[in-house]
Design a protein around this nucleic acid. Sequence first.
DNA 1: ACAGTTGTAACAACTATTGTTACGATTAGA
DNA 2: TCTAATCGTAACAATAGTTGTTACAACTGT
Lengths: 143, 143
Amino acid sequence: MSANSRLTIAAHTLTWIGLYQRRGHEVATSEQIAASVNTNPVVIRRLLGELRKAGLADARRGARAGWMLARDLAAITLLDVYRAIEPGPLFALHPATPDPECVVGHGIGPAMTAVYDSVESALCRELAKTTLEDVLRDVLKAG
Amino acid sequence: MSANSRLTIAAHTLTWIGLYQRRGHEVATSEQIAASVNTNPVVIRRLLGELRKAGLADARRGARAGWMLARDLAAITLLDVYRAIEPGPLFALHPATPDPECVVGHGIGPAMTAVYDSVESALCRELAKTTLEDVLRDVLKAG
DNA sequence: ACAGTTGTAACAACTATTGTTACGATTAGA
DNA sequence: TCTAATCGTAACAATAGTTGTTACAACTGT
């Protein structure tokens, strides 16, 4: 797959806003964030748009416009971020329906679905363990 | 991402070969497997080529050619299959290096890498729990 | 020698990601 | 009321991965 950096950029973005707000600023602009992420401001705005729909960020428009967190960093887990920006499931079943006359073709779908459900649960459990507060702490420790 | 059905098709393919061999046949052809999966034989051959490189399948060429398992179904986990066919990591870091002068830009990479390592470990642990023997049992139960 | 199959290259269609330009909509403040 | 800054979004190109397809050389049991 074309490697997926959306979760990285989303976590970067929200962490950046959180730190900026703790330093006393009200809002952060997509241009400031893009400079830190090293990308185009539109990429940041697109991503923040999805994060806003998920209730993780808010935007103020007009003059003195910009972005702020909708919840504290400690109240946002990486699972929240993942759910906000990753649309589909990790694994898919067959593109075309397998032969229903074949024993394997008939039973493989449900069998794999059960496995994929377990795997996605494990992935979500793991992502839920880390909050953006944890991420910020690690980031500052690395400095 | 364009949804990834490679693991599904690979598990289907190996399970099909395993069942076919248990019914007394020596080898299975990509055409037979493709009929069950409902796709083109070349798709199966490509996938089996990667599975062969990983030591999970073997091919016989010439007349009476076809595919066989290199190990018993019970000795192949879904993690083995996953490792054989999925090249990259689940999540990627930034496409372009983030600003190293920024605290967040500087520390976010290592922080996210640690998280991604944990997540991939959890995913692998979960995939390792299921063997193709388990898959075949579920498949036959569903019938 | 023949027939059947593997192994692989080449190509098209489709989708997702990332980056970019452009421009209307919005609003605090002069 | 005007202005300047920023959001919100559409549109497009470049790149890459997946899936399906055709084609053909290489191989080997009979």
